[in-house]
Amino acid sequence: MNKLLGVSPRHPGLWQDIPSTSMGASSGNEITTMVTETQGRDEFTQISAQLSQLSQQGRWIVLISPPNIGYKQMLAAAGVRMDRILLVHAKDEVETLWAMEKALTSGTSSAVITWTNSLDARDTRRLQLVAKSARAAGIVIESASENTNAHLTTSTMNMQDSALSQTTLFAAVH
């Protein structure tokens, strides 16, 4: 047997070619941006049924810097397990994006929802890079009052509309 192994590593775990999807990472997760004029109330109502399904999986649903829009009542009415909600209050936009990045890549969350004023091109690019290694679905709810054509182009708005027209925003998370 020693002659068959040669100089290859002796631990059997090193021989196996384990794809990253079997270790909990899921590829193809996207971070969806929703522009809102209602502080995210309408958008949050749209996704609350999907959050209910995700809360039954036992992983965290992370809410970062939510405004006071009655999200607790919306979640309870949708049947979300309240013991699976993790609430994060960030002091500024930098900390908000850092918390979102960590929650998306930790492997303990099924969904991460962040409320923010606006994202510049650098922040948008940072989230695109995070999406490549994300293990959870991410949603950024941006305030429309801060987005007076600052960085949203027509193509960006069309991508957002197509993302909202899908049957579920969390299709890649299992």
Score class of each variant (00 low, 15 high):
M1S: 15
N2Y: 08
G6I: 06
V7F: 09
R10D: 12
R10H: 11
P12I: 12
G13H: 11
I18C: 12
P19M: 10
P19C: 09
S20Y: 11
T21C: 06
S22G: 09
S22Y: 14
M23Y: 06
G24N: 01
G24Y: 00
A25P: 01
A25R: 15
G28E: 11
V35W: 08
T36M: 09
E37V: 10
E37W: 11
E37C: 04
R41W: 09
Q46R: 15
S48N: 10
S48V: 04
A49R: 15
Q50K: 07
S52M: 08
Q53F: 05
S55F: 00
Q57V: 01
Q57C: 05
G58S: 03
W60Q: 01
W60L: 00
I61F: 01
V62W: 02
V62G: 02
S65L: 03
P66Y: 09
P67W: 07
P67E: 11
N68K: 14
I69P: 08
Q73S: 05
Q73E: 07
L75K: 04
A76V: 02
A76W: 01
V80I: 02
R81G: 01
R81I: 02
D83C: 00
D83V: 00
R84Y: 00
R84P: 00
R84Q: 15
L87P: 05
H89R: 14
H89D: 13
H89V: 09
A90P: 13
D92S: 08
L97E: 12
L97F: 14
A99V: 07
M100T: 03
M100H: 11
E101T: 14
E101L: 05
E101V: 05
L104A: 09
T105N: 03
S106C: 13
S109P: 02
S110T: 01
A111C: 01
I113Q: 07
I113H: 04
T116D: 12
N117G: 14
S118G: 07
S118Y: 11
S118W: 10
R122L: 11
D123V: 04
T124K: 12
T124R: 15
Q128F: 04
Q128C: 05
V130Y: 08
V130L: 06
A131K: 09
A131W: 07
S133P: 02
R135C: 01
V140A: 09
I141F: 06
I141G: 08
E142W: 05
A144W: 08
E146F: 13
E146L: 06
N147C: 12
N147W: 04
T148V: 12
A150L: 14
T154I: 12
T154R: 15
M157Y: 12
M157V: 15
N158Y: 05
Q160A: 15
S162M: 14
S162Y: 03
A163N: 13
S165D: 00
Q166R: 15
A171T: 04
A171C: 02
A172S: 10
